[in-house]
């Protein structure tokens, strides 16, 4: 028996990017802050394009500490949400063609979140990546790093614990 030919790379890519976009753009607060996500395979990078309304200290000026915390928390939640969605798409449980905002898997809930402010956030774009250190059936622990011009000079990092949605949600 002949195996079916693999799907063209563009088709696979487009399907995955569309699913990620639905996950991200379905959340009003992520749109409010203007955060976008770029995908390389299963690795995500969050981007916070600079905007004047993100400023917390107009004298420096510097990005608001609350914005930094929110950016890191959004990055952690989407990383976790995407890991759930990705495995459901790859296993065929969810058809990304037909899934809409109402039928996406529920996002994890934050239990606690601790932010270290290492440098002031400069008035320019910021980037962040999250690493899932442990993800069990109920709880997950995630570390997030954020930087601006230089990947090795973090301006903030955070660790948070999250309650995972029930598997059938």
């Amino acid at each position: 028996m002949k195996r079916p030919a693999p799907e063209p790379v563009q088709v696979v890519k487009q399907r995955r990017d569309a699913a990620l976009s639905k996950l991200v753009h379905g959340v009003p607060y992520i749109r409010f802050l203007g955060i976008e996500f770029e995908r390389r395979g299963d690795e995500l990078t969050a981007i916070l394009p600079f905007n004047d309304m993100l400023i917390g200290d107009p004298r420096l000026p510097a990005i608001h500490g609350g914005v930094t915390a929110a950016f890191l928390e959004v990055t952690a939640i989407i990383e976790l949400g995407w890991s759930v969605l990705w495995s459901k798409i790859e296993s065929g449980q969810i058809d990304p063609e037909t899934v809409d905002a109402k039928h996406l898997p529920r996002l994890p809930k934050t239990i606690d979140f601790t932010v270290d402010y290492l440098r002031s956030g400069l008035p320019r774009d910021a980037y962040a990546r999250a690493r899932i250190n442990r993800s069990g059936r109920r709880y997950a622990s995630v570390h997030v790093e954020a930087w601006q011009d230089n990947r090795s000079r973090l301006f903030a990092q955070a660790t948070g614990h999250f309650l995972m949605p029930p598997p059938d949600a």
């Binding site: 607060y29 917390g56 914005v67 934050t110």
Partner: peptide
């Protein structure tokens, strides 16, 4: 504010907005 919603299924405000309030 609906712009600050983090869970569209329930309408609950995003934790990040609460963080921004607490930090301020």
């Amino acid at each position: 504010d609906e712009k600050l919603v983090g869970d569209p299924a329930t309408g609950v405000i995003h934790g990040g907005a609460v963080s921004a309030l607490m930090d301020t």
